[in-house]
Amino acid sequence: MGKTKPQNGHKPDSSRGLKNIESFWLAPSPSKRWGELFFLAYSPVWIILCLGIIVPLGLYERFGKLEYFVLGLIVALPCFLLPLIIVSKEDKSKPWYSRYWAKANVWIGIFGFVGNYFWTHYFYTVLGATYTFPSWRLNNVPLTTYFLTHAYFLFYHMISNMTLRRLRHAIHNIPSRVLRLFIQSAWIFILSYLTAFMEALTIANFPYYQIVNREVFYKVGSLFYAMYFLVSFPMFSRVDEMLSNEWTISQTSIDSLGAAMLVTILLDLWRILIGPIVTMPNTQTYKQCLAYGLPWLA
């Protein structure tokens, strides 16, 4: 990490959050910097719990609806509760709703809820993937996934924030705005696809996430899933990125809903123009998924 220095007579573009920053990776806002580092520091805790202990040891075989629900709470609640208890010096002078961690939770919370409530049905009907573990459900989607998604997405978006910020520092002296935009877009696409692919791969050993054709799901389905992040990574990165423009909770909520609507349009265009990536099996599980699906997916 190094200090920003003007090169070749060019000054960093403050409109992209490059002014008065202490690191090429970290946010210029002290509150956002602390929030990003907090979420990154917490992520290994739930990752080890879920993917390092519960799945490898097969502890999920003993889980019922209550145990899965409690697991979701254990993973998600610290994202909200710990920053209330561990207040950074950067945030002590701010009300809780003005702190970055609160806005990040709101943005991801809304985006993740829409993703589970609506977009999971595209996994059922387009990608041929279903959840079969015991769980209380909302719109035929396990409640546990609503909670786990929150922690997953916070982790993904902190990585995206930092890498996008570092990339912008690396290319800010390139004169062509079009070329800078192309480079950033290419990175967002690569990161989105890798994120989707790696998530699918890491839960491959969990038998209660059934997939019709794993090879097609990993390669093509990951592209479908990546559309979530093609929209969310650049949009989420804008929250409190400029020191001179701190967002409100209301602005954060509206932005997240806008991102969710754009993803919904992209997913439905895939459904209409491309259709399912596999032939759906005629099983009771998939019939149930269709029966409890969304009206426009029927």
Rank of each mutant, 00 (worst) to 15 (best):
V231K: 02
Q210V: 15
V45E: 01
L81Q: 05
Q284H: 09
F182G: 04
W119P: 02
G115R: 08
S237M: 01
G17H: 02
Y131C: 04
F153D: 10
T248H: 12
L138N: 02
V239A: 01
T163R: 04
V114N: 12
C50F: 09
D255W: 07
N139D: 11
Y152L: 01
F123C: 09
A27P: 03
D13Q: 10
W270H: 07
D268V: 00
L143W: 08
L230F: 08
I86D: 00
W296Q: 00
I47S: 09
T283P: 08
S176D: 11
L37E: 03
Y156H: 12
M158F: 12
T125G: 10
V278W: 06
H121V: 14
N213Q: 14
V114C: 14
W136S: 04
T279P: 06
R33N: 13
E199T: 15
C289L: 09
Q210F: 14
E22H: 13
H169V: 00
W247R: 03
W25Y: 12
V114W: 14
A27Y: 03
V87S: 05
V75S: 05
N140Y: 15
Y100P: 06
S29D: 15
L191R: 07
T144L: 03
I190R: 02
I265R: 10
G221D: 01
L51F: 15
M227V: 01
V126Q: 14
L243S: 08
L73Q: 06
G221P: 00
L26R: 05
M1L: 10
P234V: 14
D268A: 00
W296M: 08
K94D: 09
G64F: 07
A186L: 13
R62H: 11
L18H: 03
G275S: 12
S256I: 09
M227K: 01
L179E: 08
P175W: 06
I47M: 13
K89T: 11
Y292L: 10
Y218K: 00
F133S: 06
V75W: 03
K65G: 04
G275K: 11
A196E: 09
P175R: 15
N140D: 15
L167E: 03
N161I: 08
A186G: 03
M280V: 13
G2D: 09
R62V: 01
A298I: 07
K11I: 04
R180G: 06
I85W: 09
S98P: 01
P134G: 13
S160R: 02
T4P: 08
A170G: 02
V141P: 02
Y286P: 00
L181E: 10
L262T: 15
I110C: 14
P6I: 04
C79R: 01
W119R: 07
I274L: 13
I21L: 04
P95H: 12
Y68S: 02
L57Q: 10
A170E: 08
Q284N: 12
P281K: 13
L267C: 00
E22P: 02
S250P: 02
A102V: 15
L167H: 02
Q184A: 00
P44Y: 11
Y97C: 14
G275I: 10
T252K: 12
L138M: 11
M1P: 09
I21C: 04
G221K: 06
T264N: 14
A298C: 05
F206W: 13
L269H: 00
I188E: 04
S15I: 02
